[in-house]
């Protein structure tokens, strides 16, 4: 059978107009920031010693990371100057509307937490440090409520991390996204990459104490990827066709090579070897967190692009 279609534009080829790298990057950074929020808040509430420096850097870094994600989203909008419309209404049936408000509150908590942790910073005196001194003073005031703010960071972090998956899974027209596993997968992946980001700034000893948690998260992420594939391959024909895109299609290398092997199995093996006091080359040891973060990024790209390409 031959099929001819007239009109080379996004109406004919929807991949020309649908979501691209902006959304994948936005979902990745959203998950990363959510992971940083949750893990850092839990560690602070537990008053775990040895984490303070790493957590402070991660919490302050989370603000520009979230801003980059929002900028990517802004670039994706066809009519960016109408972005304020997201906050002029609340559409209860729209996951994106929920996400807009969650993101707004998460940003407030991110900025508050970053401000709290600037109180420990010392600056050379000069006219240019006055705003930073003021920030430190505000941080000291906000710091009195730090436990309540940490609890709110956990709640908003979970909401933000899950939202990055729910945004896709509430769109039934794309069978690849039609899976209940997507929200927990993106949440756990956010925790994995958030943990990896925090580890970049930790000393060796606290890093090793965090490894059991990170290995558990990676194992759960692998199980969720398996569950996600199972829901596709055991579903109706359109879902099976979507699953084939990931199983042996053009996105298979990205998922299995980039996410599962390089992004999860290899870095987890390195970290387990470190905990077991095996000799691990310093280079391998230092790239493990980067591999996990790359895996998280590739996961979003694979799911977004393969999802747009899948049709009912």
């Amino acid at each position: 059978m031959e099929i001819g279609i007239t009109g080379v534009d996004p109406t004919t080829f929807p991949e020309m107009a649908a979501w691209h790298w902006h959304i994948a990057l936005y979902l990745f950074l959203g998950g990363l920031v959510a992971g940083i929020m949750i893990i850092s808040a839990v560690l602070r509430l537990r008053r775990s010693p040895g984490f303070d420096r790493g957590l402070r850097i991660a919490e302050i870094s989370a603000v520009p990371l979230a801003c980059v994600g929002l900028f990517a989203l802004f670039l994706d909008l066809g009519n960016g100057w109408n972005a304020w419309r997201f906050f002029a209404t609340f559409q209860v049936t729209s996951a994106m509307s929920w996400g807009s408000w969650i993101l707004l509150f998460a940003m407030i908590v991110l900025v508050v937490r970053a401000t709290i942790h600037t109180q420990d910073l010392t600056f050379r005196s000069g006219w240019w440090t006055r705003p930073l001194d003021l920030l430190s003073r505000i941080g000291r005031i906000l710091g009195r409520k730090s436990r309540a703010i940490d609890y709110s960071a956990i709640v908003l972090g979970i909401a933000l991390g899950a939202y990055t998956g729910i945004l896709l899974s509430t769109i039934p027209a794309r069978p690849l996204w039609d899976s209940m596993a997507l929200a927990p997968l993106f949440l756990v992946s956010g925790l994995t990459v958030g943990g990896a980001f925090i580890c970049l700034f930790l000393e060796r000893e606290p890093h090793l104490r965090l490894v059991p948690l990170i290995v558990t998260l990676c194992a759960v992420e692998l199980a969720l990827i398996a569950g996600f594939m199972a829901t596709l391959l055991m579903g109706p024909a359109p879902l099976q066709a979507a699953g084939e895109l990931l199983l042996g299609g053009r996105y298979a290398l990205g998922l299995w090579g980039g996410v599962v092997v390089l992004g999860l199995l290899v870095p987890v093996s390195i970290e387990i070897a470190e905990v077991a006091r095996r000799k691990v080359p310093p280079l391998l040891s230092s790239i493990a967190p980067y591999l996990k973060m790359s895996g998280g990024l590739v996961l979003r790209f694979v799911i977004v692009y393969a999802g747009v390409a899948s049709v009912l």
């Binding site: 649908a18 979501w19 066809g78 997201f86 769109i171 999802g307 049709v311």
Partner: peptide, 11 residues
Amino acid sequence: TGCKACVVACP
């Protein structure tokens, strides 16, 4: 806003 949620939602 041109967010394209409707574009990907249209079967």
